[in-house]
């Protein structure tokens, strides 16, 4: 495998580059001979991950890539192309050759926001991708301090009417921000966002320090804080309860029809032969059924939520519609 030589890394570094010499192996490129799609896969497949190595999205993707290598019998090369909230990687993905040699991880709402928000000037739109399979839906959790009076989503709505509440987001137009706006609209509340564009750590700090009332975050990211007793989840914005926080009620139980989180799935560039898309979809489905794999995902705080190509495509467009209307809200607020 590519990264299995810690000692060699150190040794090579110490000996400078000479030791490596002129070894060179061919890696797949976008324009390699277009393979007959019926033979797919014939060679290594590149998986573009539009996020930094080591983040929550990347960990799930790398786990899947390793498992897919066994399932498909070809190497899967994970390529991190971070930048602009995923936009750099998504652009590369949309522009890749639609021959089945390149696919990638996409997250909703991130991708949809970048595609719909005109000020971002994205080169792709919501139709630039062929949806293959969904791996994870990581629902948005609402958490408060452990000693808070708020015990449920209903309490939260009541408290919000009584006074002013603030909630953390990881920046304008992020999943947390959109979740908050959708929640405010559906529940008739006015919880104010405090944006922490540098990510979850500053947001969590501000919450634990008592500067912000509500911590909004994906279940997967919030678990450590919950387990440490720094926060208590009062609800998740989903139809069904999360396996990780079974005690937290859902927004639907409270009569608030908001379902949002980070949905991570895999797509090919638009124009990729449908049988390739479907075969990848089946392979991902098979991997997700494996119990050992499910356990690996659970350790990473990820709840498997498989959708095949057709289901994922329908879900994709449904999300695009609902996010589109929230984006208008953001614009109006200026």
């Amino acid at each position: 495998m590519r990264f299995t030589r810690p000692l060699a890394v150190a040794a090579a570094a110490a000996l400078a580059m000479t030791a490596v010499g002129c070894a060179s192996l061919s890696r797949p490129t976008d324009s390699g001979e277009a393979s007959e799609s019926t033979d797919w896969p014939t060679g290594p497949i590149t998986m573009i991950v539009a996020f930094d190595a080591g983040g929550g999205s990347d960990i799930g993707a790398r786990l899947l890539a390793t498992a897919l290598e066994d399932e498909l019998g070809v190497p899967i090369v994970v390529e991190n192309r971070p930048g602009a909230g995923g936009q750099v990687g998504y652009t590369a993905l949309a522009n890749a050759a639609p021959d089945g040699s390149t696919f990638g991880l996409t997250t909703i709402p991130g991708l949809i926001v970048s595609a719909l928000d005109e000020s971002r000037g994205a080169e792709y739109d919501v139709d630039s991708f062929a949806q293959s399979a969904l791996q994870v839906i990581d629902p948005m959790a609402i958490a408060v301090t452990p000693d808070s009076d708020i015990q449920s989503i209903e309490d939260l709505v009541a408290a919000s009417e009584a006074g002013e509440l603030t909630a953390t987001t990881t920046g304008i137009g992020t999943a947390e921000h959109i979740a908050l706006l959708q929640f405010n609209e559906a529940a008739g509340t006015d919880i104010r966002p405090v944006h922490f564009a540098d990510g979850a750590a500053p947001a969590t700090t501000a919450f634990l320090g008592g500067n912000v009332d509500i911590l909004l975050s994906n279940v997967g990211d919030i678990m450590p804080t919950l387990e440490n007793g720094g926060a208590r989840a009062v609800g998740v914005l989903a139809e069904e309860r999360s396996i990780f926080v079974p005690d937290a009620g859902t927004s639907y139980e409270a009569g608030i029809e908001v379902m949002i989180g980070s949905s991570r799935g895999y797509v090919f560039p638009d124009g990729t032969p449908q049988d390739v898309v479907d075969r990848m979809s089946d392979a991902i489905g098979a991997v997700l059924e494996d119990e050992a794999f499910q356990e690996q995902m659970a350790n990473a705080g990820l709840q498997p939520a498989y959708m095949d190509a057709a289901e994922y495509e329908a879900y994709w467009h449904e999300q695009a519609d609902s996010i589109g209307s929230v984006l208008e809200l953001i614009r109006e607020e200026g």
């Binding site: 190595a53 080591g54 983040g55 960990i59 750590a201 678990m223 450590p224 804080t225 387990e227 440490n228 007793g229 720094g230 350790n299 990473a300 705080g301």
Partner: peptide, 17 residues
């Protein structure tokens, strides 16, 4: 944060507990 990922992967949640 990445280091914390290593803790979590091993089933250990960093924190006071």
């Amino acid at each position: 944060a990445v280091l914390m990922g290593a803790f979590l992967q091993n089933g250990i949640t960093p924190g006071p507990a």
